[in-house]
């Protein structure tokens, strides 16, 4: 590497640090100032002790897990089938999975409410379970671009067609092939998608607020408007979760010993 490239690299790094790290540092610092004159974890203990925090956080974690399950059940078979039987359809499917990035969540949720309200043909918003389900579907849609991309990329590393034929000649049907051959070989990719989904669901505001479910996102917004220090403590916690997820993605990619074969 030339001297200039090295210097440019450093400049970019320092710029990035001031851009991202400084605000974060300021945020963290402020969140520790709840007690006058000294640093303390008061804001954090207050937040974590808040029963509403516990309830909404648990709710959102449950929703995230359900969303991940839906996402995997939807995306893995789809990506598999497109790769195996309909390679011509890939650009279209990719386009569809990208739509949630350009269509605002609020449009999706208004559509949902219009289609599934209590006086519609399928009154899903009439029950709590129904609304939860609707919310999970909404989350699945929001996470679709990330999940699909992750899984599709994962499938590129294995020879889907030949492995399928090998399994078929050994007597396996579609369900067996998906569960025992395809899914285990894209687990790192599925986990990447899962952690991204998790991060999205934990912080999501629009869907949960408009469907009026007690999720973490609306709670975050409410606290932010009403308390001095706690929102900053919450932000730091949210950052921690997101970064934890990113770390887990890295970990998942290194996890599986057998995928080394593909490289």
């Amino acid at each position: 590497m030339s001297l200039w490239a090295r210097i440019t690299g450093w400049i970019v790094l320092i710029f990035g640090l001031t851009y991202f790290a400084l605000p974060l540092l300021g945020l963290t610092e402020f969140s520790l100032k709840a007690r006058r004159g000294v640093y303390s974890l008061d804001a954090y203990t207050k937040i974590i002790g808040d029963p509403e925090f516990q309830a909404t956080f648990t709710y959102s974690i449950m929703m995230a897990l359900v969303t991940i399950l839906f996402g995997v059940l939807l995306v893995v078979p789809t990506a598999y089938w497109v790769r195996l039987k309909m390679p011509w359809a890939r650009p279209y499917v990719e386009f569809i999975t990208l739509l949630p990035l350009v269509i605002p969540a609020i449009v999706i949720v208004f559509g949902y409410i219009r289609l599934y309200n209590t006086s519609s043909w399928l009154p899903m918003t009439g029950t709590i379970m129904g609304t939860n389900l609707l919310l999970a579907f909404g989350y699945t849609v929001l996470a679709l671009p990330y999940m699909y991309r992750a899984v599709d990329t994962g499938m590129r590393t294995i020879d889907v067609a030949t492995l399928t034929e090998a399994a078929q000649s050994l007597g396996a049907g579609w369900a067996t092939i998906l569960a025992r051959v395809i899914l285990p070989n894209v687990i790192p990719a599925v986990l990447s998608g899962a952690f991204l989904t998790f991060a999205i669901v934990i912080g999501e505001f629009t869907l949960a607020a408009l469907l009026n479910r007690p999720a973490f996102g609306p709670y975050l917004a409410r606290i932010g408007a009403n308390k001095p220090y706690e929102p900053f403590a919450l932000s730091v916690i949210a950052f921690g979760i997101t970064w934890g997820c990113m770390g887990l993605i890295q970990f998942a990619n290194r996890l599986s010993k057998h995928t080394k074969a593909a490289q």
């Binding site: 294995i158 030949t162 034929e165 090998a166 399994a167 000649s169 007597g171 051959v181 070989n185 593909a262």
Partner: peptide
């Protein structure tokens, strides 16, 4: 194909990468 009871060997081996040799053979 899965009802024909035919053994197939491919040019690209096509072993299941997530399974051990014994699990592959026992599949």
């Amino acid at each position: 194909p899965n009802q024909r009871n035919i053994g197939m060997v491919f040019q690209a081996y096509a072993l299941f990468p997530n399974l051990t040799v014994a699990e592959n053979v026992g599949f």
